[in-house]
């Protein structure tokens, strides 16, 4: 089976005149098979959003440099013209964003924000598009969908807004959906509902999903494969059960340790990863995670760990359980 999405050596650097470039994504490679759910996990600032925006080509027009290859169905997205790309966005690949309120246009109705995708990509007339929009809202679990079409975003609850955004993203049954922390702005109970909804919808439609999150708990119930991102590079990638059963990278291990477990002894301390991303070393001559790593050796601060691919992808001099 050939991959639906192949990201190869993606680099994104933000450029400011008079300042050295700041590299946000530093050679990320991963792929997504048709219908697969792939996780992209890492803490704040590790480059998750920048990666997803780069795939969609939605980064600001100025002030950054993107290199590497992003192929969908073998077509190089980075080489498409703006017009060709607009043909595919919303139809073949679409995206859900983190903050549902600011991601919807406040001055036009939810209905129009859905129907405009349908008229654009599915050639529907206004009436057909409205009927289809009712259908879509119903499918994402919005009660009384006909009335909601004429509502403005501020008249919906946070959960309903995110459902509306999901309806927009899935309106043309894209084959790839990128969800950038779609639940972080929501209440915990709503989070679970939205995740369930996403899971159910992608299963129904066969859409492949790239799930971006800082929360391994989200990944646990959802993803087939997981990419762990640190400092703009993927440090570990494995099939979900493998990763949870035996995390090899100390960073993954730390992330797992910071999830509360129901089956753990009560009152057990959660292991937090010490330090912060500010302590990162440059990848060019070290392992970026070394200053925070419980397993760090001397070599970690002076030599870049080479990526190893055997069963799982790993970038570490001294993985967990290697002894």
């Amino acid at each position: 089976m050939s991959a639906l999405l192949e990201v190869e050596d993606l680099k994104v650097a933000f450029t400011r005149r008079g300042e050295p470039d700041s590299v946000a994504v530093d050679g990320v490679s991963f792929d997504v098979q048709p219908g697969e759910i792939v996780g992209l996990v890492g803490e704040s600032g590790c480059g998750k959003s920048v990666t997803s925006l780069a795939i969609m080509r939605l980064l600001p027009e100025r002030g950054n440099r993107v290199t590497g290859s992003i192929r969908m169905d073998g077509d190089e997205l980075t080489a498409l013209s703006d017009g060709q790309l607009r043909e595919r966005r919303g139809r073949d690949l679409s995206m859900i964003f983190q903050d549902p309120l600011s991601s919807l246009n406040p001055v036009i109705t939810v209905g129009l924000q859905i129907t405009e995708v349908l008229t654009r990509h599915r050639g529907m007339d206004k009436k057909a598009a409205r009927a289809e929009a009712v259908e879509l809202l119903d499918r994402v679990g919005i009660p009384d969908p006909r009335r909601r079409l004429d509502a403005y975003p501020h008249q919906l609850s946070g959960g309903m807004r995110q459902r509306a955004l999901i309806a927009i993203a899935l309106a043309c049954s894209p084959r790839l959906l990128i969800a950038d922390e779609p639940t972080t702005a929501l209440d915990v109970t709503i989070q679970a509902q939205i995740l369930d909804l996403l899971k159910q919808l992608v299963a129904e439609t066969g859409t492949a999903l790239v799930m971006i999150t800082h929360d391994l708990g989200v990944v646990a119930g959802l993803c087939d494969r997981v990419n762990v991102l640190y400092g703009g590079r993927i440090v570990e990638r494995a099939e979900r059960h493998e990763l949870f059963r035996a995390p090899r990278h100390p960073y993954t291990h730390g992330l797992l340790g910071s999830i509360p477990r129901l089956d753990g002894p009560p009152g057990e301390d959660l292991a937090a990863i010490k330090g912060s991303v500010n302590d990162n070393l440059p990848w060019t001559s070290a392992c970026a995670f070394a200053p925070r790593c419980p397993n760090a050796l001397e070599v970690c601060t002076s030599v870049t760990p080479a990526p190893v691919e055997d069963g799982r992808f790993l970038r570490c001099h001294n993985p967990v359980g290697a002894s």
Binding site: P60, R86, R89, I168
Partner: peptide, 17 residues
Amino acid sequence: GSDFVRTANSKGLAPGT
């Protein structure tokens, strides 16, 4: 630079729209 314009672009709408 707002989020909803990014959303609009992510839908592949024509630049004029």
